[in-house]
Design a protein around this nucleic acid. Structure first.
Length: 497
RNA sequence: GGGUCGGUAACUCAGUUGGUAGAGUAUCGGCCUUUUAAGCCGAGAGUCGCAGGUUCGAGUCCUGCCCGACCCA
C-alpha cells in the first residue's frame, strides 16, 4: 500500500461516486427537531401500544456509530450530543433505491439525519422507524474500534475530537468542568464580586514565583511576559475602589509538564476588601461544600479510591508544626540551616544547597514530607514571611505571614493571605527577594513593579485574596488522575510526520 | 535531567529460542427484515516509531535518536 491506506481509499471513492450521482456530501439544509436524550427520557417508558398511538414523527441528526445489517433491514445507532438512539432502516419503509444507497454508501462515522415514528423492538429498545434518512456530512476517515474505542493515550490527546466521539466519560469530564467554572462565576457574582479581566501580557511578570514565557511586541518595541498570576493587577483594582473582584482565566508558567502541571492552567483569583485570611478559610469551606453538594449531592467525594469529606471545619495547622508533627522533622533541625541541608541530603530530598532563604528550604521539606499526607481538606497556616512576599505579617509573630494554603488529596489546591498593603514593607520585601535571588534564577524577576508600589502608596484597603487552581478542582470532582484528563488540548511535543 | 514501561494493519492487541508478520473490530464481496460487540461464508489490508549495527537471516539482539505513559529529581 502506498501513501493512502485501503480504508481511506474506499471512503474517498464512495464519496466521489455519491457526488457524481448528484448527492451532496456536505449539505446544510437538515434541521433536526429532536434529540436522542430527550426522546429517550420522554418516551423511554412508553409501551409499544402507547407509542403506536402517538402518530408523531421525530427528526434527529447525529453520527452513525453502529450498524447491524440484516440484508433487507438494519439497525443503526446514531449519536448526538445528548446520547445515542437506535433507528431501524427497513427496505419496505424507505423504498429500494434509498435503502440501497444507504447500505452501499453510508459509513460508520458519517453524520446523518433520520426521520420517522417511534416504536419498541422485541428486546424493548426505543427505536425510530426510518421513513427518511439523509447524508449530512460524509466522513472520510473511519472511527476507532467500536468496542474498545480509542485507548491510546497519545492519540486521545492529539485527536481529542475522536476521544470525545468515542468516550462518553471524556465528554462527561468536560461537561463537569464547565459546571464547575459556572459554579464559581455564579458563587462570586452572588456574593457581590465583580468579574474582571486584567493583562495576560505583562511588562513585569509578578504575583508568583515562576519562570514566565517571554514574547515581544513589535510596535511597542519591548519584551512582554505571559502572566504567571493576575495578583498585582487585581490589587490595583482594590486601590481603584472595587472592593470585591475576581478573575477566572489562564496563567502561564514556563515549567515542566507533569501529572499536575500544564504550562497553561486555569486559576481563579479573588480579592475581598476588609476581609482577612481567616474569613477566607470560612469562605473556602463554604465554596467546597456547596460545590460538592451541587455536583454530587453530598459533602463527600471519592478521589482515586479515597473518600474525601468536605464537612467543615477543616484542620488549621501552622506550617512549622506540620513539618514537625506530620513531616517528622525535629524542631532543632528546622532552626539550623546547616542541619536542614544535612537532613535533606539524608532523606534524599533535592535542594539547592546554596539557597540562602531558610523558608525555601523548609518548603522543600514540606513538599516532600507533609504535602503527600494531607488527604482530607487541610489548611496549612502561618507560612514563613520570607516565602510570602505579598502577604501581611502576623501581628504577634512578624516572622510568619497571615497566609494559608489548602491541601486536598496530597495536593495544593488554594493559596490565600491577608494582603500586604504597607508600601514600605512591600518594597522592602521585593528588594529582599531580589537580593537573595540565586544567580540567574529564572523564577524571580529582577525588576520591581514600581507602579504596583505606587498604587499601594495611594492606599489599598486591608483585604484578603485567594487563588484556587481550577484544573485541580476539576481533577478532584471528576476523579481524574492527571491534569491532562481535564484539559481539552494538553500540550504535547509536535507530532512526527 | 535520570529510571522503568510502551510504539506491530484505520482501531484494540498477540507475536515463542533470531527462521515466510497474526487475531478481533473496521473495510470489501456473498447470505440474512427485530439486532445489541448480531450471526454465517469468503477476501484484501503492514516502512513492525526512525536510523544504524550484529547475523546467512532481525518485529525479536545491540547502539543512537523521536514520540508517549508512569516514577524520581
Amino acid at each position: 500500500m502506498s501513501e493512502e491506506s485501503q480504508v481511506l481509499k474506499v471512503r474517498r471513492e464512495k464519496a466521489e461516486e455519491l457526488e457524481s450521482q448528484g448527492i451532496p456530501l456536505f449539505p446544510n439544509q437538515f434541521k433536526p427537531e429532536d434529540r436522542a436524550g430527550a426522546i429517550k427520557e420522554i418516551f423511554g417508558n412508553y409501551s409499544p401500544e402507547e407509542l403506536e398511538k402517538l402518530e408523531a414523527t421525530f427528526k434527529v441528526a447525529g453520527r452513525l456509530m453502529a450498524r447491524r445489517d440484516f440484508g433487507k433491514a438494519m439497525f443503526i445507532h446514531l449519536q448526538d450530543e445528548t446520547g445515542r438512539i437506535q433507528a431501524f432502516i427497513k427496505r419496505d419503509e424507505l423504498g429500494p433505491e434509498k435503502f440501497k444507497l444507504f447500505k452501499k454508501y453510508f459509513d460508520l462515522g458519517d453524520i446523518i439525519g433520520v426521520e420517522g415514528p417511534l416504536f419498541k423492538t422485541k428486546t424493548g429498545e426505543l427505536t425510530i422507524l426510518a421513513k427518511e434518512v439523509v447524508l449530512i456530512t460524509k466522513a472520510f476517515r473511519p472511527l476507532p474500534e467500536k468496542y474498545h474505542g480509542l485507548q491510546d493515550v497519545e492519540l486521545r490527546y492529539r485527536r481529542r475530537y475522536l476521544d470525545l466521539i468515542m468516550n462518553e466519560r471524556v465528554r462527561e469530564i468536560f461537561r463537569t468542568r464547565t459546571r464547575i467554572v459556572e459554579f464559581f462565576r455564579r458563587y462570586f457574582s452572588s456574593q457581590g464580586f465583580l468579574e474582571v479581566e486584567t493583562p495576560m501580557m505583562q511588562p513585569i511578570p509578578g504575583g508568583a514565583t515562576a519562570r514566565p514565557f517571554k514574547t515581544y511586541h513589535h510596535a511597542l518595541e519591548r519584551e512582554l511576559y505571559l502572566r504567571i498570576a493576575p495578583e498585582l493587577y487585581l490589587k490595583r483594582l482594590l486601590v481603584g475602589g472595587f472592593e470585591r473582584v475576581f478573575e477566572l482565566n489562564r496563567n502561564f508558567r514556563n515549567e515542566g509538564i507533569s501529572i499536575q502541571h500544564n504550562p497553561e492552567f486555569t486559576m481563579l483569583e479573588f480579592y475581598e476588601a476588609y476581609a482577612t485570611y481567616e474569613d477566607l478559610m470560612t469562605r473556602t469551606e463554604e465554596i467546597f461544600v456547596n460545590l460538592a453538594r451541587e455536583l454530587k449531592g453530598d459533602t463527600k467525594i471519592v478521589y482515586q479510591g479515597k473518600e474525601i469529606d468536605f464537612t467543615p471545619p477543616w484542620p488549621r495547622i501552622p506550617f512549622k508544626q506540620a513539618l514537625i508533627e506530620i513531616g517528622g522533622v525535629a524542631e532543632e533541625i528546622l532552626n539550623d540551616r546547616e542541619k536542614v541541608i544535612t537532613f535533606a541530603r539524608e532523606k534524599e530530598i533535592k535542594i539547592d544547597e546554596r539557597e540562602p532563604v531558610l523558608g525555601k528550604l523548609w518548603a522543600k521539606l514540606f513538599d516532600a514530607l507533609v504535602e503527600p499526607q494531607l488527604i482530607q481538606p487541610t489548611f496549612i497556616i502561618a507560612f514563613p514571611v520570607d516565602i510570602s512576599p505579598l502577604a501581611r505579617r502576623n501581628e504577634k509573630d512578624p516572622t510568619v505571614a497571615d497566609r494559608f494554603e489548602l491541601f486536598i488529596a496530597g495536593r495544593e489546591i488554594a493559596n490565600a493571605f491577608s494582603e500586604l498593603n504597607d508600601p514600605r514593607d512591600q518594597r522592602a520585601r521585593f528588594e529582599e527577594q531580589i537580593k537573595q535571588r540565586l544567580k540567574d534564577d529564572p523564577e524571580i524577576h529582577p525588576e520591581i513593579d514600581e507602579d504596583f508600589i505606587r498604587a499601594l502608596e495611594y492606599g489599598m484597603p486591608p483585604a484578603a485574596g485567594e487563588g484556587i487552581g481550577i484544573d485541580r478542582v476539576v481533577m478532584l470532582f471528576t476523579d481524574s488522575p492527571s491534569i491532562r484528563e481535564v484539559i481539552l488540548f494538553p500540550h504535547l511535543r509536535p507530532e512526527q510526520k
